Amino acid sequence: MSAQPEGRHRMPGVDPYPEGTEGAGEGAPVVLVVDDLEANRRLLEAVLSPRGYAVRLCGSGEEALEWLSDRVPDLVLLDVLMPGVDGYEVCRRVRGDERTAYVPVVMVTASGSEQKLRAIEAGADDFVTKPFDQSELLARVRSLVRVKRYHDTIVRQAVELTAWNRELESKVSAQVEELERVGRLRRFLSPQVAGLVMESGDEGFLASHRAEITATFCDLRGFTSFAETSEPEEVMAVLADYHEALGELVFRFEGTLEHFAGDGLLVFFNDPIPCPDAPDRAVRMAVAMRSRVGHLAEGWRRHGHDLGLGVGIAQGYATLGRVGFEGRYDYAAIGTVTNMSARLSAVAQAGQILISQKVAARAGEDVVTRSLGPIELRGISKPVETFEVLGLDSARSPS
Rank of each mutant, 00 (worst) to 15 (best):
E298D: 13
N339T: 12
Q315Y: 15
W300V: 10
L265P: 00
G321I: 08
P279N: 10
V287S: 09
A314V: 13
D271L: 02
M340A: 09
A261F: 04
G262C: 03
T256C: 04
M289S: 08
D263S: 02
Y317W: 12
Y329Q: 12
A261P: 00
I313L: 14
M340Q: 13
E233Q: 12
D263R: 02
A314P: 09
D241T: 06
N339V: 10
H303C: 09
F251S: 11
T256S: 06
I313M: 10
Y331K: 10
R252Y: 06
D263K: 02
D271S: 11
G327A: 11
E233C: 05
G324N: 06
G335T: 08
R290M: 07
G255C: 04
G308T: 07
R302H: 10
G327D: 09
T256L: 03
D280M: 07
A333K: 08
T336L: 15
E234W: 02
W300T: 07
L266K: 01
P279C: 12
Y329M: 15
L257R: 05
V293H: 00
D277P: 03
F268I: 02
Y329R: 12
D306M: 09
G316M: 13
E254D: 15
G324Y: 09
G308E: 07
A318H: 13
V250D: 00
G310I: 05
H243F: 08
S291L: 12
M289V: 05
G247R: 04
A332P: 13
P276A: 12
H259K: 15
G262F: 02
M285S: 04
I334P: 03
V293D: 00
D280P: 04
L239Q: 01
H303Q: 14
M289T: 04
G321F: 07
F325V: 09
E234F: 02
R252N: 02
P279Q: 11
R290G: 04
G255I: 01
